[in-house]
Design a protein around this nucleic acid. Structure first.
Length: 451
RNA sequence: CGGAGCGUAGCGCAGUCUGGUAGCGCAUCAGUCUGGGGGACUGGGGGUCGUGGGUUCGAAUCCCGCCGCUCCGACCA
């Protein structure tokens, strides 16, 4: 994803001093105030430049982890023919949540709420042999679900950006392996977003199947009450290190999966008081949770209904085993803010911040300030936001805090004369006076993972 | 889909009960002074009061319909 630096006098970042009255929860309020999104109708949002940068940054991490797990990206359309859904039997089952469309030739179409049918159709047209399996295909595409009651800003919109992956395997054992790979990829993805996610056993809903986990992150404004064992907090998902796991090793994946599923974690719907009581009191954790991902193993549900077969090594025809794996990319923007903000505004994790650092020119027009800011702006590159507006210092401090840049480089006339800048870390509020070079070096230390 | 509420300038609101020339704060534009946590002063611009109908000499205000948005509940990435 191309990124470019921005001068605030030229950029389109309309911040609001007051909260629009339709926004009730923190993330929604802050997304509107910081100029990330604007609502166009109930549950449908336009993404403004600042919000789009965050969305793209999250996509990038999601994509990297999907690729690392062996999934391949493609892009399927938003509009689908109704025939496929009639074949699977879901055209009637899905109900009013599915937006149905009739085109000029009177053909039944729909705006896709998910893509099992379409990907299965693509698969069956080209894959006919066990030699091509396993296969995992994913895309990051807009979905539409005509929710009865959209709310919480982008956290439950009707139109939303989702990463959805679909695995095809020759047998159940293979499908379980694919499922575990995705679970590991998900944990790493959420970790890189600065989120503490916990997989919890879940119902399969309209997708179908007999194995399913939802990934819940903790935030005070979450929709459901969740309960879990503190042991989750100590698990290391990294690729290296003693506790690390590898996508390549079935043994690793099994160990990882066991660890994820034997430690207690449940939403209020599935909460089991008997099991809960067996956990040491000091390890019981309780809080509110937001669902940011959901994975399913559903076997041959679609391959049977849609008559998909592949040849096995001994010449038989079998129905491949499938799973599907979703991450709510646009929802994550809201979820991250829910998990990371304060009274002044957003606190972006380094990995997905729209800009890594804001340069605050406290006296634009002052020769020394302007020159120093320009130098910093050139040195920082694509991730720099330069507040070169002629406004007063307080306005810039407040907007920078609101927008939540991980670093603020504050350049004032006194410091500029002495060749010093002030560096502020948004998350901690910590400030230090440094040379411009030292400030840049310190910012560079937190650049990891933005690749 | 059940229940509740709201719709007046870009944003936040008053005015509606009791009908009589549409207001406040912020933002915006011009200028002067200011200059390290949302500055001061002066002057200016911006409104089919969600929408359609009705009552009335006269409707933001009263009556009826419709639309939009939000909140609570049931449902979902």
């Amino acid at each position: 994803m191309d990124r470019s630096p921005m001068r605030l006098t030229q950029g389109f970042i309309p911040t609001l001093k007051e909260t629009p009255n339709e926004a009730q929860i923190a993330s929604h309020r802050l997304m509107l105030r910081a100029g990330l999104v604007r609502q166009t109708s109930a549950g449908i949002y336009a993404w403004l430049p600042l919000g789009l940068r965050v969305l793209r940054n999250i996509e990038r991490i999601v994509r990297q982890e999907q690729d690392a797990a062996g999934a391949q990206e493609l892009l399927m359309p938003t509009i689908q023919p109704a025939e496929l859904w009639k074949e699977s039997g879901r055209y009637d089952d899905y109900g009013k949540e599915m937006l149905r469309i009739v085109d000029r030739h009177d053909r039944d179409m729909l705006f896709g709420p998910t893509n099992e049918e379409m990907v299965t159709d693509i698969f069956r047209n080209s894959v006919h042999s066990y030699r091509d399996l396993p296969l995992n295909l994913y895309h990051i595409q807009w979905k539409f679900r005509d929710e009865v009651r959209p709310r919480f800003g982008v956290m439950r919109g009707r139109e939303f950006l989702m990463k959805d992956a679909y695995s095809f395997d020759i047998d159940r054992a293979g499908a379980v392996l694919s499922y575990r790979k995705m679970m590991l990829a998900y944990m790493r993805t959420f970790q890189r977003l600065g989120l503490k996610a916990i997989p919890m056993e879940a119902d399969t809903g309209p997708i179908g199947g007999d194995l399913s986990h939802e990934f819940i992150i903790l935030a005070p404004t979450g929709e459901s009450q969740v309960f879990y064992d503190a042991a989750f907090e100590d698990i290391d998902y990294g690729t290296s290190g003693a506790g690390g796991f590898s996508h390549e090793s079935a043994e690793d994946l099994e160990k990882f999966f066991d660890k994820m599923t034997t430690v207690y974690a449940a939403t209020d719907e599935k909460h089991d008081l008997e099991k809960w009581d067996t956990i040491a009191a000091d390890r019981r954790r309780e809080g509110r949770g937001i669902e940011v991902g959901h994975i399913f193993y559903f076997g041959t549900k679609y391959t049977k209904a849609m008559n998909v077969t592949v040849a096995t090594a001994d010449g038989k025809q079998i129905h491949p085993e499938m799973g599907s794996y979703g991450i709510g990319v646009s929802r994550l923007v809201g979820a991250v803010i829910e998990a990371s903000h304060d009274d002044a505004g957003i606190i972006w994790p380094d990995s997905i911040a729209p800009f890594r650092a804001a340069i605050l020119n406290l006296k634009s027009g002052d020769a020394a300030c302007d020159a120093l800011c320009q130098k910093l702006y050139d040195a920082l590159g694509a991730d720099a936001l330069y507040d070169d507006r002629p406004d007063r210092a307080g306005v810039k401090f407040n907007d920078a805090d609101l927008m939540g840049h991980p670093w603020q480089i504050i350049v004032g006339p006194r410091g500029a004369a002495a060749g010093k800048v002030e560096l502020k870390r948004r998350a901690t509020g910590e400030r230090s006076e440094l040379s411009p070079e030292d400030a840049l070096a310190k910012i560079a230390e937190t650049a990891a993972g933005r690749g």
